[in-house]
Design a binder for these strands. Structure first.
Lengths: 230, 230
DNA sequence: TCAAAAGTGTTGACGGTACACCCATGT
DNA sequence: ACATGGGTGTACCGTCAACACTTTTGA
């Protein structure tokens, strides 16, 4: 056994706030029903212990895959929660992450069994164990902030989307209505949305144009000091 | 001994990026010369182990006080660094914080002895141990971002300051020059700076007016949706 | 033909940017 | 008297906010 530092070692977990969106629906968070104590039977954020040979980021990726079946999605570190008794068993530090998932492309397949995981609207989140309510609030605040100056909204939408879907998503996250004409004008002027030439299908009204977000173009513009703002 | 989780427990530290500013000088970072291995003798960020009964935030406050003698300053969690071998001894997770210090009000008194701590200009930071260069870069990026939409600059200045000192600070952090007239116009229009009626002392040119930042007013404006932006 | 959402322009107010000179003070 | 920074106003332009009607499509 190599030398180790002569200080107490807490347990270390990652917890993920998973936001999911389906076009023309509402923004939701994924919760898992705990199978083990503590808080057995209550809903909580998916997460788990960090292993010894993986980075904390890698642990978040792994837990997300194990508990929800999704991978290759937007995942970013949020904040670290380290109050002494946030876990009743022993000292546990949790590094929180948040993920953005487009539910069309990544339908949920909870690894264990479907009844253990469920999507909740932000306005109807149940009681959660630990300090997970605080973590969720922190993630919502971050998302609300971030969407204003970085194009993360597209992570929640399918590759092709309509401007109305995009606007609805922004309205939900920002919790206010936006003017349709101004919204479209501003986004189209950035020249970051490419018109696919296609239209919505199976709607009982005029079909909307489908756009794609041009990630390449955004990346190159960003180099030159451009900043996405809404 | 109570039940503990059957998972590996890494060591947990906090590291602080301490920014210090003295009016009419340049922005600096405080580094400590390590007295123990690993990296004995190299400069690194002040920090230390989190104790079992203190929150991670409290550990950052304590380390800052122990290693620099300052307390009651702006201190905010930055990011958590958890690559597997960032510490050669064993697995160590570090929660990084950054502090903003006004050096006029909080002259440094390194707890151990003065030769162990020193201020470095951002353009002349020496080699550091661990992944501390990465942590510093992260802190600089955060500060640069944050100062644009929150009034954190005032944490680095004395209570009373001149507009030129404030502008110089912004220019250093943002790494670009600002137009004097526009800068003053914008700040004064916010009505958050109160003219103390006093003037600078001991300068060999026309003495500038001294202002104070009105924190109370800012707090109440913030409630009503106001956002400080520069 | 009705319902439901898509799509589209103009105007006025405001804020950002660019820019140059005189003033006060200490040496 | 000179050097050093303090302090000030205007004009142009682009961006934001407010606002209502016509078009397309399926039921």
């Amino acid at each position: 056994m190599p030398y180790t530092y002569d200080y107490p070692h807490p347990a270390l977990t990652v917890d993920c706030v998973v936001f999911g969106f389906e076009a023309s629906k509402v923004l939701k968070v994924l919760l898992i029903k705990r199978q083990q104590p503590p808080y057995k039977g209550t809903w909580s954020l998916p997460g788990g212990f960090v292993q010894m040979e993986e980075s904390v980021d890698a642990a978040a990726v792994r837990e997300l895959r194990e508990e929800t079946g999704v991978s290759n999605v937007f995942l970013e570190q949020l904040y670290t929660f380290g109050a002494p008794h946030r876990d009743p068993r022993e000292r546990v530090i949790s590094v929180a992450y948040y993920a953005l998932i487009n539910l069309q492309a990544h339908p949920l397949q909870a690894a264990t069994d479907a009844s253990d995981a469920a999507w909740f609207e932000l306005s109807a989140v149940p009681e959660m164990g630990f300090d997970h309510a605080e973590i969720l609030d922190c993630a919502i605040a971050r998302l609300r902030n971030k969407i204003r100056y970085e194009p993360v909204g597209f992570e929640l939408l399918p590759t092709q989307f309509t401007l109305s879907q995009l606007q609805s998503l922004y309205e939900q996250i920002l919790e206010r209505t936006l003017d349709k004409r101004n919204f479209r004008k501003k986004l189209l002027k950035m020249n970051l949305l490419t018109d696919t030439g296609l239209k919505e299908k199976d709607v009982s009204h005029r079909a909307a144009k489908l756009y794609e977000f041009d990630t390449r173009k955004y990346q190159s513009l960003k180099q030159t000091g451009f900043s996405f703002e809404l």
